[in-house]
Design a protein around this nucleic acid. Structure first.
Lengths: 338, 338
DNA sequence: CTGAAAGCGCTTACAG
DNA sequence: CTGAAAGCGCTTACAG
């Protein structure tokens, strides 16, 4: 408990015991190879190490070993509860495997993403877990070419042979829309993000095909809003959808944030849920529980997503070359809003 | 864009240009000292560096310089939106000053906290921003003794000369309770965490003194719940408070999570807000907006808190020895629930 | 069973 | 104006 001013070095132990630093290093690390070291000496080394409160300087270890035991986690925004809890699950899993996390947020901006990737590369992270943003294909491609261990999470980038772990987004909105239709809704709108990422495409495709398969092709109505202008865009999209011209009787909100903004609009405008409008959202959010008509939503298995992504990444770091594509099953939590 | 398999080293540039690595290092780093280097040579070095896509290996730099440009951020739980957004603001500020963040969560558990501190020390972080948990005094004391740059955020530990940035917690609940009293409430209860941390004490003290100053000393009713059993404890505390024996007409919920659990209870039990019970919560949460009676809450200036803590930490890292104690002003956002 | 030595990729006094 | 060399704190072949 009473550490000294200066950190204890391997050399301090070696000097005190009267052996070489090599021996100390061997003893403290390779328990199995310990035949190298006399039992007596080994014991003494360990004693002194504890006494001096020795802990290895990881930076020196990293430089020597070429491995930092660090994972770079790049998400859209760590303040977004969806990514926050994902980060937490990833943290738990990483910790249990001896890794720490350096976390960065992109705000869905490929410039920030590029800066982050470069910084983390220079920091010699052993691998990346990345929520890719629009237009970051080149960055990812580069990492893959350079054989940097990498797994994409939440979204993938087609045409790049990288591992990914994500929701079965098609099924997610297909199920949601099927559920709305079964509850008698016919004019179902969808609000999504304008994005080149396939997870959005898949969510839209799930919606569209569910509509088509139920003979509601003519009622398909999708609006894509911009991240940078989410507030206004959602408002306009909603306005348009509930206008007499379209008059939707249900709406699918394609992400956590869109669900929040959508609900907000509906509340402000006194739209009666579920009587006038059925609503299904995406991702869990504490706020969904407090809406007067608790929101029906598509629940992502975030913990599993986190676990799998760390597992796959660590495998890669350890030299296993498989590319894994994992699509997790969404769960539709039916509540009052639909 | 077309990086090679192997990362470019200083030596690669030196070889190609035909100078020593020293010269390359000087050129690429100390722009001011560049008189050292012939203008021609300097230009050539820079060209080649760009051509080979050179970026320095930060681990090697760190080992040599004894500085990692990394901040260890220890929070209670990164999945908690309060800490999530705090982390985000800290990230922004740190990035702008050239630092990266290694983030860890303690779950308010001093054992996890100790493990985290040790890991981050071994990783040679340049400094810590810590949300201290119960019983972590010794860890903090140790860091301070060892002159590790450090700032406590959100909470402080009395008796330790460490910088801190936190809310004026006394004022926060004093204002909240005064507001409730002005709205005609008299039997005001408070639900807090059982904690040895002073931020809780201060919140309770602000509540108590506001009650006393308004002649409501006899109505003081505080229940402290445990983190590990928050769900049940809040329920029991609430049950007791609304029971005929106590029959509170308002309640102050002393944190983000307590507010959430409290609201949940009130919803389940069909307590009419604000008619039967006035409610004031702590910290922003998207969920507060969606409660049928939007919650009155104490807003913390999280961005300012984040900014100040990074600024103070970086000053310390740069050798400035001041100990700063900053208490930020809370803002009471009055809405329908009170 | 044990130690001297090289090396990870940088930076920076030191000497010229 | 420039280079050879030491050193940050470790690990690990190599030699004995």
């Amino acid at each position: 408990m009473e550490k000294k001013e200066k950190k204890t070095l391997l050399k301090d132990i070696a000097d005190k015991v009267g052996v070489s630093t090599a021996l100390v290093s061997y003893t403290l690390n390779n328990l199995e190879k310990e035949k190298r070291v006399g039992a007596e000496i080994a014991k003494r080394i360990r004693e002194v190490a504890r006494e001096l409160n020795y802990t290895p300087n990881q930076i020196a270890q990293s430089l020597r070993k070429g491995s930092t035991k660090t994972i770079g986690l790049i998400v859209a925004d760590i303040a977004n509860p969806f990514f926050g809890s994902m980060a937490r699950f990833i943290e738990n899993e990483a910790t249990s495997m001896g890794y720490n996390l350096i976390i960065g947020s992109t705000d869905e901006d490929s410039v920030k993403s590029a800066a982050l990737v470069e910084t983390l590369i220079n920091r010699q992270v052993d691998g990346f877990i990345i929520v890719p943003s629009d237009n970051c294909e080149n960055q990812i491609k580069n990492l893959v070419q350079n054989k940097v261990p990498l797994v994409l999470v939440d979204r993938n980038i087609p045409g790049i042979t990288a591992s990914f772990v994500m929701l079965d987004n098609y099924k997610a909105s297909f199920d949601a829309v099927s559920h709305l239709i079964q509850s008698g809704r016919k004019r179902i709108g969808m609000i999504a993000y304008k994005s080149s990422m396939t997870h959005m495409d898949e969510r839209i495709r799930g919606y569209s095909e569910a509509m088509e398969m139920n003979g509601l092709k003519n009622n398909i109505l999708v609006r894509e809003v911009r991240h940078i202008n989410i507030e206004n865009d959602v408002q306009n999209a909603m306005d348009e959808m509930i206008s007499p011209k379209n008059k939707i009787d249900a709406v699918l909100l394609a992400t956590n944030q869109l669900s929040l903004k959508g609900l907000y609009f509906l509340m402000k405008n006194n739209i009666k849920i579920p009587e006038e409008l059925g609503v299904v959202g995406f991702d869990e959010n504490e706020a969904f529980d407090f809406f007067y008509a608790p929101l029906t939503y598509i629940k992502q298995p975030i913990n599993e997503m986190a676990r799998e992504s760390v597992r796959i990444l660590v495998d890669q770091i350890n030299g296993i070359k498989n590319v894994s594509h994992i699509r997790l099953i969404p769960q539709l939590i039916k509540r009052k809003s639909s």
